[in-house]
Computed example of a mutant assay.
Amino acid sequence: MRAADVIGRAPGAAGLFASLGPSFVVGLLHSESHVLGGLVIATLAGSGAVAQLVCARLSTHRAILIGTAVLLVGVVAMIVAWRCPRRCGSSPVAR
């Protein structure tokens, strides 16, 4: 059952990053470039491909543990960056 939970949540997080990431980065860098937004999507897809190649020989259990940990770290880093606009730059999200 735990594997199903992870498999269900990972695409949701990827969808969140794919939909909000480009506007977040463009707003954070104060740029109008659509290339920067596209780089977010390319980075997301590229990191997924690299992770599959690197983790191909891991056991299923170990891959799920590592993947869950990396997913949590990424979500926490995004929340911290969003919540600390003074230290991390200006927040592109209107409050």
Rank of each mutant, 00 (worst) to 15 (best):
R2F: 12
A3E: 04
A3S: 08
A3T: 07
D5Q: 08
D5Y: 09
D5C: 05
D5V: 10
G8S: 10
G8R: 06
G12T: 06
G12I: 05
G12H: 06
G12R: 05
G12M: 08
A13N: 06
A14N: 02
A14P: 00
G15S: 07
G15F: 10
S19C: 09
S19Q: 12
S19E: 07
S19N: 09
S19H: 10
L20A: 11
L20Y: 05
P22W: 00
S23K: 04
S23M: 08
S23C: 06
F24L: 14
V25W: 01
V26T: 13
G27V: 06
G27M: 09
G27D: 06
L28H: 12
L29I: 13
L29H: 10
H30N: 13
H30R: 14
H30T: 15
H30A: 15
S31D: 12
S33M: 08
S33T: 12
H34S: 11
V35M: 05
V35N: 03
G37R: 00
L39R: 00
V40M: 02
I41K: 00
I41Y: 00
A42P: 01
A42I: 12
T43Q: 02
T43S: 12
T43A: 15
G46L: 04
A49S: 14
A49E: 09
A49M: 13
A51Y: 08
A51I: 03
Q52F: 07
L53S: 12
L53G: 15
V54L: 10
A56I: 12
A56W: 09
R57F: 14
L58R: 05
L58T: 01
S59D: 12
T60C: 03
T60P: 00
H61T: 15
A63N: 07
A63T: 04
I64W: 00
I64C: 01
L65I: 07
L65T: 09
L65K: 08
I66L: 14
I66E: 02
T68N: 11
T68I: 02
T68A: 11
A69Q: 05
A69W: 09
V70T: 13
V70N: 03
L72V: 13
V73H: 00
V75M: 10
V76R: 05
A77E: 08
M78A: 15
M78C: 14
M78E: 02
M78K: 01
V80P: 01
A81T: 15
A81W: 04
W82Y: 10
R83D: 13
C84P: 05
C84H: 09
R86G: 14
R86K: 12
R87D: 10
C88Q: 08
G89V: 13
S90C: 08
S90V: 15
S90A: 14
S91W: 01
S91K: 03
V93W: 12
